[in-house]
Design a protein around this nucleic acid. Structure first.
Lengths: 204, 204
DNA sequence: AATATCCAGTGGTCAGACCATTTTGCATTT
DNA sequence: AAATGCAAAATGGTCTGACCACTGGATATT
């Protein structure tokens, strides 16, 4: 078989830690067992445990404090992103893939948000545009749309992709200007116009 | 000073490796020095070297082959994305959220696939329906659509969500029957019909 | 009661040993 | 000379044990 890849211990540990977090419902701030305890619980040497923990730490999912322990951290895509950007040379096809997914998600948010829109949310969206005018306005506007959709999963996926897009696409502010237009299209429930506006943003 | 954070050895190693790659102009496929050599070059124990290498490996920047060495890899963000997803998107998801996202992704695949469709792909899609008739037909059909979109990241995300969905929604086969209908709509480039068919599948 | 000290727990680092896999180079065979 | 087979070296994978550095709470001292 070509796929007979034997998983390394640290990768198994990784998965076990993930399950541990899930089963014990650990959330940001909570402490993981000590490295020595994990040695027994996960049946692996401390070296392997540490390899896994260091990897998760670099991803930004946990935080270790000398003398205290290892703690779950609130995930911030940007750390991973800036880290990666120091390594990455140039995006290939990757950039197009990322941006396409980002666009699709935002398009979905706009259309889905459109269905949930009401007077209150319109007012809030206008407020968002004012508040962040010229300063990551597009980001917060889209985020509001996702919140409107009442689907945290969708929001999370977008935030993840959005973070990674920054590794390949620095210029993002130029989208800030169209929030007003986009909101108008949403108010008018004009799907076609929405698609047009967002599509143009991504040169499609 | 509040910022007097003493960097850990593995973090210094991380930076040194980055510099090494930069200075030696290593590109995907090239080999890094062996762990034992790095021990001397970077002035750190093998454990620390390995902690750094494992972390970079998990990020998807390098690849290690037993007995051969450590190699620079072409970076693919979606590896990192799906990895992070397993940590971030785990548990606590309602059935509705998952299914909504799944539906949206499949809708996107259908519409996007529609734009890339041609005689060859139509034939292949028909083949897929035949081959898996009544046996996870819908899954393979949608997968073919994603392949048509030429966006691995999108495919990855869907597969991930699809996997999660199975934990909350066992009944899936009832969708197998509409592949023929869906394909017809795609051939006719009838966006509205596509939306209707998939929407009905998810009772929306 | 406030302070100083100690100590157990925890992460940080290192050195060395041994195993598993791959490559390499040499000896043998053809 | 070419092909083959085998032993050795190189390399990653894993484990163990030791010791250091930091933290926080328990204990002793004032």
């Amino acid at each position: 078989m070509t796929n007979s890849e034997k998983a390394k211990v640290y990768q198994e540990v990784l998965e076990k830690i993930r399950l541990f977090i899930e089963q014990h419902q650990l959330s940001p701030g909570d402490r993981l067992p000590s490295e020595r305890d994990l040695t027994e619980e996960l049946n692996a040497s401390r070296s392997s445990i540490r390899e896994a923990l260091r990897a998760i730490e670099l991803l930004g999912l946990i935080e270790t404090r000398h003398g205290e322990g290892t703690f779950i951290k609130t995930y911030r895509p940007y750390h991973t992103v800036s880290l990666l950007s120091t390594f990455i040379l140039n995006g290939t096809r990757t950039k197009e893939e990322l941006l396409e997914v980002k666009m699709l998600l935002e398009l979905n948010a706009a259309k889905l948000g459109m269905e949930h829109i009401n007077q209150t949310s319109i007012k809030r969206l206008h407020g968002t545009i004012m508040k962040y005018s010229g300063h990551h306005c597009y980001y917060y506007f889209i985020q509001e749309l996702f919140l409107l959709c009442k689907n945290d999963l969708l929001l999370n996926i977008w935030q993840l992709i959005e973070g990674f897009s920054k590794t390949v696409d620095v210029a993002d502010e130029f989208r800030d200007g169209i929030c007003q237009e986009l909101l108008a299209a949403i108010e008018n429930k004009d799907e076609h116009e929405i698609q047009l506006i967002i599509g143009n943003l991504y040169h499609l």
